[in-house]
Design a protein around this nucleic acid. Structure first.
Length: 322
DNA sequence: ACCTGTCAAGTCTGG
DNA sequence: CCAGACTTGACAGGT
């Protein structure tokens, strides 16, 4: 099994390379000249895109082929305060350059809209802005020239006292989505509400790939099905996408705060999971969600080096014996 | 240079 | 019906 590792949005090793620089709505409002304020937002966005390109160059240098873009590349993009603003014309060259670099170097990229994006919500206004946000993220991927292999990964959402009616709302909204958005979605089990099994069943039903988060499964295991038991079905949700399945990996911050992410990744649980699925899984991509970002990735690679059945193939991937 | 409170956004719980 | 917790990087405004 060939396993590639990646990390989320920003590096702790590349200095001054934030991809999420922003301006508060209050500051935006204070500027008397709205056009000048919008130009300032565009300059911030351009910096974010430039810094993201620097991160991709860093990734290439360290053989990292899996990466999640910051969801805040364009500040205040869908905020009501910027209503009527279209940032894309002035950013098209920066977006294009970024996507071209990712494509040329065989990088798997994605977005993960924040937890404000909820398709189960009973509130019309929340749904409206959720769809707006999804559309914005898809438009960024399109501006980068990236195809449907670049996904937008979301959680199912809340329950509002009744999981079945919540899922019903998700279903009816899902089928109404434009193809351009629907084809990009993946579903991830969360740490409180929808377990891995529930997410899997729903992903199978509506026909989207599922991203398994091992840490979420650990803190929200449902009836305790082992991740490895669910794996064949989870893997099957990726059939026909042309992509290896993807999982998220992180470790609890401490015993008291088990949901929060630790600085680094504890290798043991991951190693045992990988060993148990290696024989049935040709390829896998792993997103590391740790506070120390790419440093956590580098440390994990060191930890895996020389482990029984593991062979490091480059700076950010390993071969695991089945 | 460094510190602290605040920030667009949702949901859930408890009062 | 409302306040607070959850969570997070970065701003804003202060020393």
């Amino acid at each position: 099994m060939h396993v590639r590792f990646g990390y989320v949005a920003m590096s702790v090793n590349v200095a001054n390379a934030s991809p999420s620089k922003t301006m508060t709505a209050t500051q935006f409002e204070k500027l008397a000249d709205r056009e000048a304020a919008l130009r300032k937002l565009e300059r911030l966005a351009m910096e974010n895109l430039h810094n993201t390109l620097r991160l991709l160059r860093h990734n290439r240098a360290y053989d990292i082929h899996v990466f999640r873009f910051s969801s805040k590349l364009v500040p205040l993009a869908t905020h009501p305060i910027t209503e009527g603003w279209d940032p894309f014309p002035r950013l098209s060259e920066s977006f294009r350059e970024l996507g071209e670099y990712a494509l040329r170097n065989g990088m798997r990229t994605s977005f993960h809209p924040d937890h404000f994006t909820v398709l189960t919500t009973p509130r019309e206004e929340v749904l409206r802005v959720s769809l707006l946000d999804l559309a914005h993220q898809v438009r960024m991927l399109e501006a980068m020239g990236l195809g449907a292999e670049s996904k937008c990964n979301i959680h199912i959402g809340g329950t509002y006292g009744n999981k079945e009616t919540a899922l019903e709302r998700f279903r009816s909204r899902f089928v109404e989505l434009p193809d351009s958005i629907r084809n990009r979605l993946t579903l991830e089990n969360d740490d409180k509400t929808y377990t891995a099994l529930e997410t899997l069943r729903f992903a199978e039903e509506i026909g989207v790939p599922m991203v398994l988060d091992l840490h979420h499964h650990q803190v929200n295991p449902g009836d305790g099905e082992a991740a490895a038991e669910l794996w064949p079905r989870i893997q099957a949700t990726w059939n026909g996408t042309g992509l290896p399945p993807k999982i998220h990996v992180s470790s609890p911050k401490n015993e008291k705060d088990i949901r929060a992410h630790a600085d680094f990744v504890e290798p043991a649980p991951l190693v045992s999971f990988l060993r148990s699925i290696a024989s049935q899984t040709p390829a896998l991509d792993i997103m590391i969600e740790a506070k120390q970002k790419d440093s956590a990735l580098f440390r994990l690679m060191k930890d895996l080096e020389g482990m029984d059945g593991f062979r490091t193939t480059d700076g950010a991937s390993v071969e695991v014996n089945g």
